[in-house]
Nucleic acid binder design. Structure first.
Lengths: 361, 361
DNA sequence: TTGTACGCGTTATCAC
DNA sequence: GTGATAACGCGTACAA
């Protein structure tokens, strides 16, 4: 079935059918109806390849998740939620979603080339790209629009991205611990090759400095966004007797909690914990995690919308979007109410008491 | 850049370039080399739309996850792992992956039509489709190959699928509880509109019957594959004093554990638990979950491979593939060693002692 | 308002 | 071995 067949059945020419399908104004009401009827009858869909060939648009957006090494799909729910947001927005705009899951193998070159030069998508959303990934330099040569999730660590000014204010959010989190009397606050970082990891470290340092506290290198453990990193990091850090830990992510925080409890110490009494993300696990631990919530699903949705706006020429590059975060206070930090003088100079980051509609442990 | 341009640069005709790209035998060694050089220089990739238009193949497989209602992306890691497997296999075969995330909205009709009739993919992998989903009847009219993950509850004989032997696996799990002295074994099901949920229920009943135990309807709670269902289901079931629970999935089991511990009862002493899946959370609870492991990632990979084989005509429909499962014994069932006379008549399902390389709580 | 004719970039079928 | 050339199905000037 093609336009020609439909045209014949409806007693019109092929171009008229095309006009009907593309909502061209210059079609009389009853021709349109007649054609529509046939289209419905035949359950006809125009051939996307033929269409793409002439319009040079596929109405597909590509989503690249470059580093899959377990973390992405087993250790936490960050990427799944991102995908949910991306999928939802993509669908609303009537686009399709091409998913590229990466891995660091030898075939990377072929994979990268396929992603960047094959015109299977009209644009790309790229999540959590490390600045040293071979894909990075290729992005700059590309002809289609790109939106990165997380602030790129190079060429920031030229690249579209959507993220949160990691630095300030981390400052707020650590500031909260300080405000509640913690003095030896440790930090376990996520991947510092990604701005999410790096900026939270910076925010941590800022908070200490602003409070007149020393930044002790011994209290910083360079990890990854995994439970295992949190666990081992904490085991290591315990020798330096921290009274609180700011974890670069909730998954890390879960590992931290486990390590602390294994040593017979109490959370939050002996050591307070604050996580980051507010993903599922934050509510499933005992005590539940105090954490800096970021709108992960919304990040995905906004990224997709932005990309499509770029593709359709409704917006011009570069676009930089910051989404709001929120400190959610639960049991792990030892303050059952928000400290008062927090984040007064930034309207994007607010401290609120975290509700919990889920069953609690 | 197109074939014509490359041809000009290489001093040959367009057809020759096409032959080189498609590895046609009838090209002399040095013409091939000359053409290849130009292709490399220009970083040329043939236009997929033009190619698809004539070959009628996109080299893209579609992956449909029909019901997204949170569960898929926040409550457990089943679908992410499936996706990891699908992505890996797809990539190995040099295909791309088009992801369709569903939701039950009014726009479904449009969405379904787009999936089934637009030729953007050469075939479809469909995960966990409920038998009452509007997509189901449409599948049967389709012209491209389809592989379902999970046994379809209708037209099983006509549809390709890859799954596990849920019935026998559930029997083995429950049999294990029985062998260790449990007599009042409850069951919280997953979605029984999916074979994964339904067949495990059947296996549960079979095991009881074979052991001469009564099947008490009061001990069966019809739930979903979520932690919340497990939690509420268990709260409800406690009035009937079960001494063990077979949970339809690990996520359910986590909710069960939480509910039991909240009531001051001990696992496994007062109530034993066996889960299903062996996803991440199974090792993160205290006690860790005894569970029936299924190879989720492999399910995805095998489904993708099967679909591509079908597309390329290497295999004929229908194909039914069963993957092996394995009982992993940890702390929650109260048996620190496998019971002896289990699963003796089925080589696909083995009982082994579960190792744990992860830090334990 | 509708129809005609051309071009999009490939592959495939012929000749040579 | 290689080069013309006819599809593939659609959008879109341009003509009517």
């Amino acid at each position: 079935m093609n336009l020609e067949d439909i045209a014949k059945k409806a007693g019109v020419s092929r171009s008229t059918v095309s006009r009907v399908i593309n909502n061209d104004r210059y079609v009389s009401a009853d021709t349109r109806e007649r054609v529509m009827r046939v289209i419905e009858e035949e359950n006809f869909q125009p051939n996307p390849a033929a269409r793409a060939l002439v319009t040079r648009r596929t109405e597909i957006i590509g989503v690249v998740i470059p580093n899959t090494e377990n973390i992405f799909f087993t250790d936490n729910s960050y990427f799944p939620m991102l995908l949910a947001g991306l999928g939802e927005a993509t669908r609303q705009r009537d686009y399709a979603l091409l998913l590229w899951l990466g891995e660091l193998t030898n075939k990377d070159e072929h994979w990268i080339r396929k992603i960047t030069t094959s015109r299977q998508a009209d644009g790309l959303v790229i999540a959590s790209l490390t600045h040293d990934h071979p894909l990075f330099p290729r992005l700059l040569e590309m002809h289609m629009p790109i939106v990165m999730i997380d602030r790129p660590l190079q060429h920031e000014e030229r690249i579209n991205y959507v993220t949160i204010d990691n630095i300030h959010s981390a400052e707020t989190a650590v500031g909260h611990l300080i405000a509640h009397g913690r003095r030896r606050i440790a930090h376990i970082t996520g991947h510092v090759e990604i701005s999410d990891g790096r900026d939270r470290l910076i925010g941590y340092q800022n908070a200490l400095t602003k409070a007149g506290l020393p930044v002790d290198p011994n209290l910083i453990y360079y990890g990854k966004f995994t439970r295992t990193a949190g666990y081992h990091g904490m085991k290591y850090l315990l020798q330096y007797k921290p009274d609180a830990v700011f974890a670069g992510g909730d998954t890390i925080a879960i590992g931290v909690l486990q390590a602390i409890q294994e040593e017979g110490l109490r959370v939050p009494d002996d050591i307070g914990i604050i996580g980051f993300d507010d993903i599922d696990v934050a509510r499933q631990s005992n005590p539940q995690l105090t954490t800096m919530r970021q709108p992960v699903q919304q990040k995905g949705a906004v990224a997709a919308q932005l990309l499509i706006d770029l593709i359709e020429g409704k917006l011009q590059s570069p676009q930089h979007i910051l989404l709001p975060t929120e400190l959610v206070i639960r049991g792990s930090c030892g303050a059952d109410h928000p400290a008062l003088p927090l984040s007064s100079n930034n309207h994007r980051t607010q401290a609120t008491k975290g509700g919990d509609v889920q069953p609690s442990q």
